[in-house]
Computed example of a mutant assay.
Amino acid sequence: MTQDTASPTPTPPPTLAPAGALWDVHQPVGRRSLLLAAIGALLGLGIAGYGLFTAQGTRTASIPAEDAALVNAIPVLRADLIAQVTALYSVPYAQTTRSQRQKVLDDMVREELYVQRGVEMGLSNDDIDVRQALVQATEGQIAQDAATAKPAEDELRGWYTAHRAKYASEGLMTLHEWRVPAGADPQRAVAALRSGTAPDALGLKTTGRVDDGEEFYFAAHEHLGTRVFAVARGLADGAISNPIPSPDGVHIVQMIRNTRPVATPYPEARDQVLRDFLADKIARLQEGNKRFLKKRADIKIAADLQ
């Protein structure tokens, strides 16, 4: 006896809701719920992100108009900046340059960093209640760290060798600087001067830059400029230079007397070498400490002062 088996009824394929029914609130549509949930999540993330990156204490937060900067949320007042810039440069704030304002602001930020660092080190306001004292105490700690490490003798000798000119007597020179007339042959003028011909007979005129008699090397350098001074310092007493082309014509230097610097021997200069070595070390440590404090700090600068 055979038994008839009924074939299973096929499941109809799912039908998609018409496009117009997606937003019909009277019809339950699963896709609409998913879309609304996704839109809500995106809006929430956008609002949270805006709040995160504009909240006070973040680097993108705006700076109040009365502040020039914020250092770890501590304000550097614009009024204090204006007062310091005016006092330092002795001109109204509006007449100072952008670089001058930035330099003063950088010093004020550094001061605030040092004050905060001083508090971290335990220099409380109960003992030191003046900002400058906090700054000096922080700098003093750095100087103490540098001074406690006694430099080796070869380090001092290396410093002396690298800065030998600093430990020499100041050179002196007495000279004339002549300008060759337009159209004249500079080489013939030099040859005539070396043979003893008077400058007036050659039509040479002084530039007026070194006519005050004996000059220290640093003063002669300032008056003559780097190029002409480099030629002059190499001349012996009574020597005449070769023609020196310059923006205002061809010049000739006539050296009357050149007293060159004399280096101070290391044993005599050692005490000064030690002071200079330590001062340079302290300056480098302070600069490194400043970079470290800036790197870890949250510093915001007003847009007009950046």
Rank of each mutant, 00 (worst) to 15 (best):
E112N: 08
P13E: 08
D4C: 03
D127E: 15
Q144L: 14
A94K: 07
I63Q: 03
G140E: 13
V85Q: 10
A61F: 06
V253W: 04
Y167G: 06
V253P: 06
H223Y: 09
R284S: 13
W178R: 00
L172A: 00
D127S: 14
L113M: 12
E268K: 15
D212A: 11
Q56K: 02
T5C: 05
R291F: 12
E177A: 00
L134D: 08
L45P: 00
V76N: 01
L204D: 07
K295Q: 13
A55E: 10
V231D: 12
F277A: 07
A79I: 02
D80F: 03
I244L: 04
Q272M: 13
A162I: 13
I240Q: 01
L35I: 06
W23C: 12
V273E: 12
A87T: 08
P267W: 13
L278S: 06
A55W: 14
V109D: 00
Q95P: 04
Q84P: 08
K103E: 07
I128P: 11
T161G: 14
I39D: 07
T264C: 11
R131C: 05
R260H: 11
L293K: 13
A283R: 15
L305D: 10
D126K: 14
A297P: 05
V29N: 05
A230V: 07
K300P: 02
Y114Q: 15
Q132R: 05
V273P: 12
P247W: 10
Y167T: 08
A279F: 05
W23M: 11
A232V: 08
D200W: 02
A201E: 08
D145W: 14
E214Q: 05
T138F: 13
V91L: 10
T207R: 02
S33R: 15
V119G: 14
